[in-house]
Design a protein around this nucleic acid. Structure first.
Length: 556
RNA sequence: GGCCCCAUCGUCUAGCCCGGUCUAGGACACCUCCCUUUCACGGAGGUAACAGGGGUUCGAAUCCCCUUGGGGUCACCA
């Protein structure tokens, strides 16, 4: 048994693609088979060398390794891929495709067609205007053999089309069942483009044959393509793999999940802020690029540019690529778990499981036929559970690695001990590996640069007087400051003892009355780890300096 | 629009194939209360679905038909 995942290398690995890969992998590996990876780069416009490397990394990160396919050196030093049926890039297999295409032409099962793209476009539009379904009219078949020869000799650009026999086509699908497409639904489709590259349909069929693929699991959007592939298999004398078409994963609003969603979010943010020029300091985004992007919805920003712009606009981009989820601090095991749950379930109310479980239990019988809406909120809840359940040492290791990659400023600013305290204090309140860094900006801000939020909650904590006439937060701060200054052993417990003394004497033991003003005083906001941890991490000097600045700031 | 597929809480789903055990189960979200030095976590409750209409049957979420709704696809993209 051999399954394959065959993406086109247009950017990073999409979560939908990741789920397909996951299912293909699980299906084969759970049955002692092989999982093969192949890069479908037959579209010269869309492909780039760099793009394909991205998702090798993404797959590996998820824990999905391929038995055959492009070679990849994993971070652990091992090599993934290789194999006897390469090359695994379709652009390197042109000779094979051409050989097979010649066979078809010689057998009269495929033919040259000289229609130009413009001519076909016009016919398509005419058909649409007449409310008729468009089918290729086989104009090229009216040409005599000599005419074709002559045109070929003269170098007239030509495509090759597959001659589709009349009659209905019945598809056997392991998920959808047996489906019959009526006669005439499949027209003579192109199998080789003018640029000499095969189309997807042709390359897929040839490669699945030569790579000995036995089971094709792919997204449902490919379902009707199967008919074309079957025609080709019959023409070429190939065996037929077993097919299973997976339900699509969509956005919560039912729209297709697309890389363009990021651009959409960004355009909306630009509009909302009424920006007329690109924010300064974004590499590769000058006025020209900006104008072009804003003016044409089909133009997409590079990932790096998009991320930079999102940061400048202070908006969160929707995660759609595997790498986005990594960056947002999701655990790979959680992503694969959740992905599997979109379109499949093991039954018995079981919904938390690992990769090994998926490999063990995945089957086509329990695959859903309906599209699944991707619920990021539930994913977040799963990630929270997983992070909380992590042994402390594992969490610290992972959160540090995440920081080294995305928030180096934290690692430079904090001593190992301080970082450890911060991590300990953050573990149980983290839903992602990113949370520590996003919610503790006070750590990296200098004492002199700290600013206080202008919010209701901040005012309530430090400025407002309570109705019973008890002291304001600011007054309490002024009162505890000397006590803090007197703490010689600056640890969370010593600080707590000092503050508790004050609270017992002046707040009826209610620590909150003084904890919250302190929090605001040293972090600028109302949210932070437990206050004594916060102060301990910050250190005595910073704490006192920040309190002084706070007192001064709010005194006005 | 043609063709194809699908239809259980807001969402992911269990149950459907092999009708009764379903006053339809779980999870996320939501609401209420509790815990609490902030946030988050945690604890206890709660609201919430078989798209509609016809059949078949003693009996239908489960089988059949129609309607409605949703999705996919109709490229020299994959």
């Amino acid at each position: 048994m051999v399954t394959r995942f065959a993406p086109s290398p247009s950017g990073h690995l999409h979560v939908g693609g990741a789920r397909t890969a996951l299912f293909c992998w699980a299906f084969a590996k759970g049955r002692g088979g092989k999982f093969l990876l192949r890069i479908e780069d037959t579209d010269q416009k869309r492909s780039s060398d760099a793009a394909s490397v991205g998702f090798l990394k993404d797959l590996e990160w998820l824990g999905i390794r391929w038995d055959e396919g492009p070679e990849y050196k994993a971070p652990d030093g091992s090599t993934v891929g290789g194999g006897p049926h390469g090359p695994y890039f379709q652009s390197e297999r042109l000779d094979l495709y051409n050989r097979e295409i010649e066979r078809l032409i010689a057998a009269g099962k495929a033919y040259y067609a000289f229609d130009t793209a413009e001519e076909l476009d016009a016919k398509r539009k005419a058909a649409q205007a007449a409310k008729q379904p468009y089918r290729y009219d086989r104009a090229a078949l009216a040409l005599s053999k000599d005419e074709v020869e002559a045109k070929r000799k003269a170098g007239v650009p030509a495509v090759v089309r597959c001659k589709v026999p009349a009659g209905p086509i019945t598809i056997q699908d392991e998920i959808l069942g047996t489906v019959t497409l009526p006669d005439g639904e499949v027209d003579d489709f192109v199998i080789r483009k003018v640029d000499g590259f095969p189309t997807y349909h042709f390359a897929v069929v040839v490669d699945d044959e030569f790579m000995q693929v036995t089971h094709v699991l792919r997204a449902q959007e490919h379902f009707t393509n199967t008919a074309k592939h079957m025609v080709l298999q019959d023409h070429l004398g190939y065996r037929r793999p077993t097919y299973g078409h997976l339900p699509i994963i969509t956005n919560p609003d039912g729209s297709k999940m697309s890389k363009r969603d990021k651009d959409k979010t960004l355009r909306a943010a630009v509009q909302a802020k009424g920006l007329t020029a690109p924010p300064a300091g974004i590499a590769n985004l000058d006025v020209a690029a900006w104008t072009k992007w804003l003016g044409d919805k089909n133009v997409q920003l590079d990932i790096e540019v998009a991320n930079a712009l999102a940061a400048a606009l202070d908006v969160a981009l929707p995660e759609i690529n595997v790498d986005d989820f990594k960056r947002s601090g999701y655990l790979p095991g959680v992503l694969s778990n959740f992905l599997a749950l979109n379109g499949w379930s093991p039954g018995e109310n079981r919904e938390k499981f690992d990769l090994a479980f998926i490999r063990e239990h995945f089957n086509l019988d329990r695959v859903q036929k309906t599209p699944a809406k991707f619920d990021r909120v539930k994913l977040l809840a799963f990630n929270c559970d997983a992070i909380t359940a992590l042994p402390r040492e594992d969490y610290v290791r992972l959160v540090r690695a995440h920081g080294e990659r995305y928030y180096p400023e934290f690692l430079t600013k904090l001593t190992p001990d301080q970082f450890r305290m911060l991590a300990d204090a953050s573990h149980e309140r983290s839903k992602t590996l990113d949370d520590l860094y996003r919610s503790n900006r006070w750590v990296v801000v200098t004492d002199e640069a700290l600013v206080w939020e202008d919010s209701k909650n901040v005012k309530k904590a430090v400025v407002d007087k309570s109705a019973d006439g008890s002291p304001s937060g600011l007054e309490r701060l002024r009162a505890v400051r000397p006590l803090l200054e007197g703490v010689t052993d600056w640890t969370a417990s010593s600080i707590e003892a000092a503050v508790k003394t004050y609270a017992d004497a002046h707040c009826e033991g209610n620590l909150g009355k003084v904890a919250q003003p302190l929090r605001v005083g040293v972090t600028g906001g109302t949210v932070s780890p437990p206050i004594f941890d916060t102060l301990a991490i910050l250190g005595k000097a910073s704490t006192l300096r920040r309190l002084d600045r706070c007192l001064e700031h709010f005194a006005r």
